[in-house]
Design a protein around this nucleic acid. Sequence first.
DNA 1: GCTGCACAGTAACATTAGTTACATAGGCAT
DNA 2: ATGCCTATGTAACTAATGTTACTGTGCAGC
Lengths: 210, 210
Amino acid sequence: MIQELKNNYGHLFEDALLNEINQVGTFKEVAAGFKMMEIGDYVKAMPLLVSGAIKILREDTDGDELLLYFLEKGDTCALTLTCCVAQTKSKIRAIAETDSKLIMIPIQQMEEWSEKYKSWRHFVFESYNNRLNEMLETIDSIAFLKMDERLLKYLAEKVRISKNNTIHKTHQEIAYELHTSRVVISRLLKKLETLGKIELNRNAILIKDI
Amino acid sequence: MIQELKNNYGHLFEDALLNEINQVGTFKEVAAGFKMMEIGDYVKAMPLLVSGAIKILREDTDGDELLLYFLEKGDTCALTLTCCVAQTKSKIRAIAETDSKLIMIPIQQMEEWSEKYKSWRHFVFESYNNRLNEMLETIDSIAFLKMDERLLKYLAEKVRISKNNTIHKTHQEIAYELHTSRVVISRLLKKLETLGKIELNRNAILIKDI
DNA sequence: GCTGCACAGTAACATTAGTTACATAGGCAT
DNA sequence: ATGCCTATGTAACTAATGTTACTGTGCAGC
């Protein structure tokens, strides 16, 4: 694991900390679609993402979903940190969006490392910052954008994280993540196709120009 | 200041830290309506709220506003923390919702105290947690609730933080904070009055039963 | 090739929210 | 009282989004 670690976190953490992570962390690989955390779960470990992408979802009391943001390489989940520190249940669902590799850190280390390693403190603060900013972005999208703009933003983000111009999702899946209905998404996608921005195929959306 | 400090933060911080805060912190009183921070400002100090309430607003590129949440006694602004740590511009606007008292901490202390005081680290983490949770609540409201439900929630929150059944706001002000139009708010408020939940008067809304 | 099923296209309609326009009313300054 | 400004009430309309219902189509398994 040490090599995987160094490659991805070597610029952030000093050797002593890398060694400690190597000691107590466990390596984990998950396939796309794997549900890594469910709402209400207690959290026992904190993930450091090495590769892939994890989508973070919020759900209301009626079971309606909403995509909050994606975690990528080098990210950790601040909401997991929250749960670790406060020992509360998870308020979100986490699902692997692509095949992903992670290092799981038992929460016991958090406090100790926070005292001992400046770089760890910085990493944790930085993570909180990133997550807060992503949440602000999400709020902006929901509050200020119309559905067609949100859809465009979603497609662009998907292309960015999957590094692939073809998105393999059904309209229904997109509708769930944006918390709207399949008909609405189909309608808007068709409009985008008419505008020449995308090309629609069964289970696939080719992004031509966004 | 030490007494004000002890009353509000004595249960959180050890004496040594309280003394340090007393040394470097400056006491500040602001009147309702005072703009404490503007979008784009650089942040040089972190506020500890002693009494009152601060509203935190987000704005889009067209100048449209949205209320994110209120800070109350014992809170600090995690988004300010963010800015302090990362030395970035503020992404939000902060306005005193009621007359408020605060202690301002120069950001230089942050790093030092994080290493030295476990209680400080906990306070900072706790603040991030609270803010993340408030943001989740905000997202829930925007994404899952209809405008009438959001308005109800807003009124309830206003009553809670001002400890007063009469809300002194114009319909236009409420409309700004919920990012909708005055006509919509007037319409919905009138409906609530018809239902016997509130009583409308010029510049004042009496909450009877929510 | 047939069948069944999940996915996508589309029309017609309902609901919610935003907009425009104008009327009315409270309250202050003169 | 008069005039003026701000706040509120309301109707009528538009736009955006959500819903229902039905059609068409690609594809896997037989």
